[in-house]
Nucleic acid binder design. Structure first.
Lengths: 231, 231
DNA sequence: CTGAATATTTACAAAAGCGTAAATTGCTTA
DNA sequence: TAAGCAATTTACGCTTTTGTAAATATTCAG
């Protein structure tokens, strides 16, 4: 049975592999920075995880997850995102509060719990931040997603997620009137500084390109005209 | 912030205080036995918790919770029982499976989570085992409860809870056809050995007095004749 | 290709939690 | 009251996870 700490290392390795430029490998310093520990500490743990055959590690080399380590890491991510979905949808937590609590809940050991929770939530595909939730087999739907920064003027779309999960960013998102599944229209783009003006529920706001790059959107397709509008 | 281990000591102290003959105090050996550790280990922790002013402890004396320790212990119990209720009612866990998972979930630190969960469950008064759930203020409804062993022949009642939480017992309960809120009738009691015959959904079974002492029942009052029967 | 900056590793050390074995205390009983 | 026994405590040691400081390897710039 893995300790919380060991699980966090697997999760960090997975995150670095996904973020990295396709290299899938990470240096000891990067891993240490990700987990807010000293490189010496990370080094010890990497050797320990190598013993457990969860990480491939060589002295003075880069580290990466083995197939077994990857599987376990994905299971943690699955649990994290399912719990986030539960907190947001069932308990009414706000967007920026779910992460911290899910960091604790993701370490609960019970295969039955995870799968029952998944079922209870209706097998969601994405969490409140728009990140894909791995299914029970560990498969992830890695669709490439477009950001608000890439949308042309006049484009209508809905918010599918965010890339930045810091509380500061999420609170700003909230202030602009955006939320998961919220509809918006790009009304103009300043050629000079790239400021993007958007309309949300009739209210207009200007956001920076930097802000827009962290908003994942789903272009609105006028399928079957209308669709039920709840509320 | 308390560690999982420290929290478990508070819970054990509370349990021993409730179980004990009103003494509220517990010896080092009893505490160690309750937590499956050696007395030497428990001794160390008691000294540590005394430093934190959560436990009153004197060399070669008995230990008990301080007001602060009691408050924290009750909070753990509250979380444990709320999670059990969630697992049972929302996720469809069986009676005998909830305890183990709740042992983990009770240590999640988030005041907001506990209260939102309480609200989500409709502020339940008792958990699936029939034990009272402390409210947000730490108050417990300590109604005295009667067991099946105390019921007279002909008595109709519903199962309100159990005293024994072992999987073996709960599975036996299930086998007899009993479950939480299940209705039953005491059809006869053998004068010789005290065997109690009960009728559950038209099926008769005999149970030992020892078994009956671990079933908490609520006498059935014929209020408003009938009531909806949900299959 | 060499020297300096950077990354990585080793060699301690500390705190938490647990165990073993050997005192020590206190209670009971003869 | 004194012995004996159970409960409790002390003294050490082990493992995990973390840190600091110093050594070592690698890499990159000139």
């Amino acid at each position: 049975m893995l300790s919380f700490t060991e699980e966090n290392y697997l999760k960090a390795l997975l995150k670095l592999a996904w973020e990295g430029d396709g290299s899938e490998e990470a240096g000891t310093n990067d891993i240490a920075r990700e987990l807010n520990v000293k490189p010496a500490t990370a080094n010890d743990m990497l050797k320990k995880l190598k013993e457990k055959k969860l990480v491939s590690y060589k002295r003075y080399g880069k580290s990466s997850l083995t197939a077994a380590g990857r599987r376990l890491g994905i299971e943690i991510v699955r649990k994290h995102r399912l719990w986030e979905t539960f907190l947001f949808e069932k308990l009414g937590f706000s967007w920026d509060e779910v992460h911290e609590v899910a960091e604790q809940l993701e370490h609960i050991k019970s295969a039955k719990l995870v799968n029952k929770l998944d079922q209870f939530l209706g097998y969601p595909a994405v969490d409140p931040h728009g990140d894909a939730i791995p299914n029970a087999k560990g498969e992830i739907n890695l669709q490439q997603r477009k950001t608000l920064a890439e949308q042309a003027v006049g484009m209508r779309c809905t918010v599918a997620g965010v890339k930045d999960n810091t509380a500061a960013f999420l609170q700003y998102v909230d202030k602009v009137g955006l939320a998961i599944n919220q509809q918006l229209t790009v009304t103009s783009v300043q050629p000079y500084d790239g400021l993007i003006e958007i309309e949300v529920d009739g209210k207009r706001s200007s956001v920076s390109p930097q802000f827009a790059e962290n908003i994942i959107v789903q272009p609105l397709v006028n399928k079957a005209a209308g669709g039920r509008s709840k509320k």
